[in-house]
Design a protein around this nucleic acid. Structure first.
Lengths: 146, 146
DNA sequence: TATTGTTATACTCTATAACTATA
DNA sequence: TATAGTTATAGAGTATAACAATA
């Protein structure tokens, strides 16, 4: 194996979309990780904010988050311990558990939403409010196609 | 603890930017994971594409990827095993190692770039070419502010 | 039999800490 | 002493497999 000099791949090409999207997520994660969120992390915020008002089963929650029911079940167990979620047996199908947010869980979701909105406002200021709005909408449109 | 009915948090609010960006990354990752890439994964592509033509030290590589030198060193060891990277001692500082891509590493980066471009073209088709271009540019601009 | 959820185990991607070699 | 890299260990975020309870 020899060293390849003067190869054809540009040294400083534009980063991939995946890399750029990753940087965006990292920015939010690092910002919030530097603050006090009662030991909750990004993965918990994501899961918490996915719980609908009427509750959801663990399997369906996993589906919506594109993870296995084993994984979602583990998160639900943790967030139940911390008092952010509550679980009851579904009376109509006693195999199933219905997961709902507690008042604390609701409050956390509201606080997280507000915090992320602040970050987004900073970004909007950096690239222009209209551009950012359009950016966000494209992101939303793309998400709908997956 | 009681169940909270009719709480103030919307059941189906818009997902966070972090969630949306995550979905984007997942889409790329899942697409490529379903294909044959010689056992390489997203993390490897990201690292490979970050190696500049003139080489880079392990510590500096870690800095650019926002990870520790221990982590980047591990990836370099793996990708050296697979023949995508080569490492030599820096003659000017014999503590340091200079990491460069092999011909195989270069080829892989080109193939990955082409593959992601194809995915992006599909997205551009879905949301409109101009909108997608602007979306990508905002992503790039935001990345520059971090 | 099929499905919901749980338990056990393992893998990926990283981090922190302690160390070696060189500066 | 400080820095580059390595080795050891651990934690977060998942996955797969096997199972128990219920449908």
């Amino acid at each position: 194996m020899t060293f390849v000099k003067g190869n054809a791949v540009p040294a400083t090409g534009e980063p991939h979309v995946a890399v750029l999207a990753g940087a965006l997520m990292r920015e939010i994660r690092d910002t919030m990780q530097a603050e006090d969120w009662d030991g909750l992390r990004q993965s918990h915020f994501r899961l918490l904010s996915t719980i609908p008002r009427d509750g959801i089963t663990i399997t369906e929650l996993g589906d919506r988050l594109a993870m296995t029911k084993q994984a979602s079940g583990q998160f639900v167990a943790f967030l139940t311990e911390t008092g952010h979620l509550e679980v009851r047996v579904d009376p109509e199908d006693r195999r199933a558990r219905v997961v709902v947010r507690t008042r604390l869980g609701d409050r956390t979701v509201r606080r997280v939403n507000a915090r992320i909105l602040r970050i987004e406002r900073k970004w909007a200021k950096a690239v222009g409010a209209e551009r950012y709005q359009e950016f966000r909408q494209v992101l939303l449109d793309l998400g709908a196609t997956f």
